[in-house]
């Protein structure tokens, strides 16, 4: 049977074309990942002068550390909240912006340009806005009767961090949702208009399912964002404080490995993080993607 299948003559040229990409992936992804895996089983002095194999000791330390567990829980809650709010708000804004007939482009530009702000800059700006001594917003919160103190109160610090993270992520989601909305054929929208008077129902039964592929893609992007890319915000805004209440898994890797020079322990954390992201991605593709019809 297989003999009858038509075969195309193979040429090495395509491999040549993908070689740079493969090389980049190998050097910048697989090699560091392999290094992290190797180091996670070692105990090393910071200078690399001595090194010994310690088996799973680094992992045992991690999983017996209540702080690590706290960091884990915070990362999950934080990622869920950031992803949910940045997607929901962006969707709302995109739908509203899409309905505007005249002067659409100023709205789009205004809603998008936050994206151009680097996380570290956003963090420092937010630091001044929320600061207890000089902050405008913390002054407003205090006037409203909320004794807002992100430097000393873990809840306030988390609220601040989530607010800023969401604000920073909305533009990306907005752009994609808007593009998704404009990709819906006019004929479908008109047909829906005739069939259904209620705009809300029309949105949930027609528009949203058609947007689902975009939404799914954005979900993956947003979870990754909350996990990894918020590092710059955290480092400039809270440094994981107060009391370790805004420390995410990525920030802890930085604290232990980069600041603390304990490479073995932080490598073990990186490996845990890699597995976690892998698992999340698998879950997302397996269970959520199935419900989406492209």
């Amino acid at each position: 049977m297989s003999d009858k299948r038509q075969r195309l003559p193979h040429s090495p040229v395509p491999y040549l074309f993908i070689a740079p990409q493969i090389l980049i992936v190998l050097i910048f992804f697989f090699w560091p990942a392999a290094q992290a895996l190797y180091l996670s089983f070692m105990l090393e002095d910071p200078w690399g002068l001595s090194s010994q194999f310690v088996g799973f000791e680094n992992y045992r330390i991690l999983f017996n550390d209540p702080e690590y567990l706290g960091t884990f829980v915070f990362t999950m809650v934080y990622s869920a909240l950031v992803s949910f709010f940045s997607l929901a708000i962006a969707l709302l804004l995109a739908v509203k912006a899409n309905n505007i007939v005249r002067g659409q482009s100023p709205y789009r530009v205004l809603l998008t340009w936050v994206y151009a702000i680097a996380p570290a800059v956003a963090g420092i700006t937010a630091y001044f806005i929320f600061n207890r001594q000089v902050g405008v917003l913390s002054g407003l919160f205090n006037d409203l009767g909320w004794d807002f103190a992100p430097e000393t109160d873990g809840f306030d610090a988390s609220v601040m961090l989530i607010l800023v993270s969401v604000w920073k992520q909305i533009p990306v989601n907005f752009v994609f949702f808007l593009a998704g909305l404009q990709g819906i054929p006019k004929s479908i929208r008109e047909a829906a208009h005739i069939d259904c008077e209620n705009p809300q129902r029309r949105f949930w039964t027609i528009t949203f399912p058609l947007l689902a592929p975009t939404a799914f893609f954005l979900l993956v992007i947003n979870v990754t964002y909350a996990f990894f890319e918020t590092f710059g915000l955290i480092d400039t805004l809270t440094q994981g404080r107060p009391g370790g209440s805004t420390t995410t898994l990525v920030y802890k890797v930085y604290q232990d490995g980069f600041l603390g020079a304990d490479l073995g322990l932080s490598s073990a954390q990186s490996v845990v993080l890699m597995l976690l992201v892998l698992a999340l991605t698998v879950v997302q593709f397996r269970f959520i993607e199935r419900k989406i019809h492209y």
Partner: peptide, 21 residues
């Protein structure tokens, strides 16, 4: 040794102590 991390713990526990946790 590894005193940078110990200092981090001190900061953290001071935050918690002052917050009454």
């Amino acid at each position: 040794g590894f005193y940078v991390q110990t200092r981090e713990t001190i900061y953290r526990e001071m935050d918690r102590l002052m917050a009454g946790d």
